[in-house]
Design a protein around this nucleic acid. Structure first.
Lengths: 168, 168
DNA sequence: ATATATTTTCAGTAATTATTGAAAATTCAG
DNA sequence: CTGAATTTTCAATAATTACTGAAAATATAT
């Protein structure tokens, strides 16, 4: 297989996967393109490779930068902006998990926190089902959060750091 | 706060969260509704609570059953079908992770497996960037899969089982 | 068997989300 | 400063995804 063909297939699959996980397909494709690029790419490169408009390219690059998955990269002697992606997939994964937690899970948990004090007979089946489900989710989320923090901080911690090296 | 109001807010938030993670918002709402219901609900109950059509309700209930998140439940003396949701959030989470892996990650990894043999100079920057990224993702996915299997099988294993009880 | 209740399907439509492209804003070299 | 290069914005439009409602299929009681 030719490299160009392989890249295309990778970009395509990464795009599909992104779509399934609630990420704009094009954003995932831009990310994929930068992941497999040997050198920084400009907006024009990205437009050309993915056949997308300037506006679309720009928006998705900005968003990838918000997610800390893509960085600007200066190419001397050129006024254009160039971009690179973080290529350590472990870092990519922890970054995405951390951000999705912050952006999406935390707001949900905040709402749950407001649903704990309900009027009425605490012993009715309806009441119990509700209270138990909410408490359950909160407990689960708390543990998941601890685990995520441990994983994210693993590299700053001598014990986990060495343990994680086996894992990575 | 009244129970009905709290339920509504929960259903709403769960729906938003689902949407952000690539799950049909209505499907997430049906799931939420069943999660906090004190008793099994019929299609008509779900239609009424969420103000959705019969077709929509039916489709989403079927899909939730495909995901093993919802089960039929027989109410004696009634011809209608009734539905309940798995309420142990730990089980819900492992179920979703397992199924998303199977449905979405595995196909991606299958594609990656086909992209390892590329024509051309193995030492070019482009080539190296590509090969390394692919290998990286595969390695990461392999470890993630092992971890997921461990977690899923935890309850069938005496050691993990007792360990997990602290966690749940 | 027939009537009736219930579930499923799916073509048409509505709602949402993504994309374009060109104008406006910004940046930067001379 | 000036003007060309570049980036950003956003209204219009396209593409995708979700929903409805009624007809068809299925199941159940008598």
């Amino acid at each position: 297989m030719k490299l160009a063909e392989a890249k295309l297939q990778f970009i395509q699959s990464w795009g599909v996967l992104g779509g399934q996980w609630g990420i704009n397909r094009t954003m995932a494709q831009v990310h994929a393109l930068l992941l497999v690029a040997g050198n920084p790419l400009s907006t024009d490169d990205i437009m050309a490779e993915l056949s997308i408009s300037r506006g679309n390219a720009n928006m998705n690059i900005r968003e990838l930068m918000d997610w800390k998955l893509v960085d600007k990269s200066i190419v001397s002697g050129d006024r254009k902006e160039y971009f690179t992606a973080e290529k350590d997939i472990w870092k990519v994964a922890t970054c995405i998990m951390y951000q999705r937690k912050k952006r999406e899970l935390d707001p949900m948990l905040k709402v749950l926190g407001q649903l704990t004090d309900i009027e009425g007979d605490k012993r009715s089946a309806e009441m119990k089902a509700f209270a138990e489900t909410i408490a359950n989710i909160q407990k689960f989320a708390g543990q998941a959060e601890k685990t995520l923090d441990t994983v994210i901080k693993a590299e700053e911690n001598w014990f986990w750091s060495s343990f994680m090296k086996m894992f990575k």
